[in-house]
Design a protein around this nucleic acid. Structure first.
Length: 528
RNA sequence: CGGGUUGUGGCGCAGGGGUAGCGCGCUGCGUUCGGGACGCAGAGGCCGCGGGUUCAAAUCCCGCCAACCCGACCA
């Protein structure tokens, strides 16, 4: 039984000055958490009980699904991470330290290497697979900007699972088992969530889905169709287009267009010059990028920006993608900044990709690759061709749902889980193989599956709180019963004491406000 | 890393060259006792850190650090 008379708890009347989002504000005011440093928090008794209730639900569901719990250190040696190249790849987000002998260590941001090595150390036969193991462990990431209280901290608790299979069909089955277990888990946690495809897969990316808990303060944006339930990460949103049905345009025509640095100024000039009534959507924007050192052009309608994340996610095999800089323009003297068009790309040595909206047969107003000149009736398939289509334009509310053609909305959410078919990257790098039926070594294929445990506390708080305060689902609350003894007569306290004990005897956890020196008002406010 | 804001008792804030203040919380005594009670008496401060100007710095100047918000980044 928790007794308010002795509980390590001090509620605050005022919102803390450094808390913005509801979960942070309320968790601090209610005496659940305290900040220790940027993105690092302590849990007080009420908070820790809540946290543990959530952790236990997750653990139960993992165990129910047949996954086995293990535990790794947080403090890890450099070598395994060196072998997979993440010691350098992870960059400044990795907390690094040295021991007294000067050897390099790190605080684990995620544990793929350790799981892989654990299995490698024990198992060596296809008969041992499939296997799924998990841990609940504190993770460390030196985020550039921790924010939103415990939603994005530098130290946080994550449940991470890994599956090990001999082939792709096995991986798919393990993936589906985790997916089912996650659905059960989040339902029990009382979270509203959408399962969102995180990569298009169209270009060979591994299968990956995110579990997103919708809430206005979430930091992830995603696309949602309120009609059919389609949900996708913006990177994975697929553009629906119709084949070009207009007339065959006249031959393309170059015209003078001085002082048109922006799409708006170009539209105004064209409308004045030709008596047209076009919009930015009739112009073609050519955005030049460097993809792993190679110059590429991305074509999007002039009324849309290029979303670099979408391009990167949908261009197969590209590691580094960035905008053209001045020195890049210097290397391509034929490229006239502000007057780029796709007509001469081949001669200029630039590979061209188009957003799907640039359908074959459509014609556009675009740069003429000469200073102060644009061209119109520039037609895809006649006046220029592209190497391929790639999802590139920013996604906007009102875009068409790829499943049911309804206009979609853009929604915000907290990422509470992520499931991912990793494949053989880590097994290959660390030499995890098993012998198959033929006695031949096979590289194991892996899946990785994460749930933000501490983040779930915040996500549930965000979704369930009301104007008055925190409002936990029963299974998660620090206690199932909050019993308040209010009054001056000692018999009230005696009765309440007995009632509290009876409730506990019947298997209910009780937070008993047995304070004799607090007014009823204080007790009610604290309860809330 | 760019832009913005802020650092003063545990929390929320005021003060802006000469005795460091208010509200909440905390301690003691008394009154009150069902929606954050009241009175009286108290405890609690390197005014973010370092340097400078000055007879005198929380306050002015220089430098640094930290936190928060927006963005970039991150999944």
């Amino acid at each position: 039984m928790l007794r308010m008379s002795t509980l390590l708890l001090r509620t605050l009347r005022d919102d803390p000055a450094d808390a913005e989002v509801a979960s942070h504000r309320l968790l601090v005011r209610a005496g659940y958490v305290r900040r220790i440093a940027a993105g690092i928090y302590s849990w007080l008794p009420l908070g820790y009980r809540t946290y543990r209730n959530i952790e236990n639900i997750i653990r139960e569901e993992m165990d129910n699904a047949g996954f086995q719990e293990v535990h790794f250190p947080s403090l890890l040696p450099r070598e395994p991470y060196q072998e997979t190249n993440r010691w350098s790849e992870y960059g400044p987000d990795l907390f690094r330290l040295k021991d007294r002998k000067g050897n390099d260590y790190l605080l684990g941001p995620t544990h793929e290497e350790m799981f892989t090595l654990m299995v490698k150390g024990e198992f060596s036969s296809y008969k041992d697979l499939p296997l799924s193991i998990y841990q609940i462990q504190t993770k460390f990431r030196d985020e550039l900007r921790p924010r939103s209280g415990i939603i994005r901290g530098r130290e946080f608790v994550m449940k991470d699972s890994y599956s090990f299979d001999i082939d792709d069909a096995g991986l798919e089955a393990s993936y589906q088992r985790h997916r089912e277990a996650y659905i059960k888990t989040f339902n029990r946690l009382g979270l509203k969530f959408n399962i969102v495809s995180a990569m298009s897969g169209a270009m060979g990316g591994s299968k990956s889905e995110e579990f997103l808990a919708p809430c206005p303060t979430g930091e992830d944006t995603y696309v949602l169709c309120e009609n059919c339930g389609f949900a996708a990460n913006v990177e994975a949103m697929v553009t629906k287009v119709e084949a070009y049905a207009g007339n065959v345009p006249p031959a393309f025509e170059v015209f003078d267009s001085p002082n048109t640095p922006t799409i708006d100024s170009l539209v105004e000039l064209v409308n004045n010059k030709f008596g047209e009534n076009i919009t930015g959507a009739d112009t073609l924007k050519n955005v030049l990028l460097m993809a792993d050192g190679q110059a590429i052009a991305i074509l999007v309608p002039g009324d849309r920006e290029v979303d670099l994340k979408r391009v990167a996610a949908n261009l197969a095999g590209v590691q580094e993608l960035r905008l053209f800089e001045e020195e890049d323009f210097a290397k391509f003297p034929g490229v006239v900044k502000g007057y780029v068009g796709p007509q001469d790309a081949e001669a200029l040595g630039i590979t061209v990709y188009a957003d799907p909206r640039i359908v074959i047969g459509s014609h556009w107003i675009t740069g003429a690759n000469a200073r102060d000149k644009h061209a119109r009736f520039v037609t895809h398939g006649r006046d220029f061709t592209v190497t391929g289509f790639v999802e590139a334009a920013e996604v906007k509310a009102g875009d068409t749902c790829p499943q049911c053609q309804t206009p979609v909305v853009i929604d915000r959410a907290i990422e509470i889980g992520h499931i991912f078919q990793l494949g053989r990257k880590y097994a290959k790098a660390l030499g995890l193989t098993v012998l198959d039926q033929n006695g031949k070594a096979q590289v194991v294929t892996m899946g990785s599956y994460g749930i933000g445990v501490s983040r779930a506390v915040a996500a549930i708080a965000e979704q369930t709180h009301d104007e008055i305060g925190l409002n936990w689902p029963r299974e998660i609350a620090p206690a199932q019963i909050h019993l308040v003894a209010a009054g001056k007569d000692g018999s009230i306290f005696e009765f309440a004491e007995k009632l509290a004990k009876d409730l506990e005897a019947n298997g209910l956890s009780v937070l008993f406000d047995d304070r004799r020196d607090s007014s009823a008002g204080v007790k009610f406010k604290d309860a809330e």
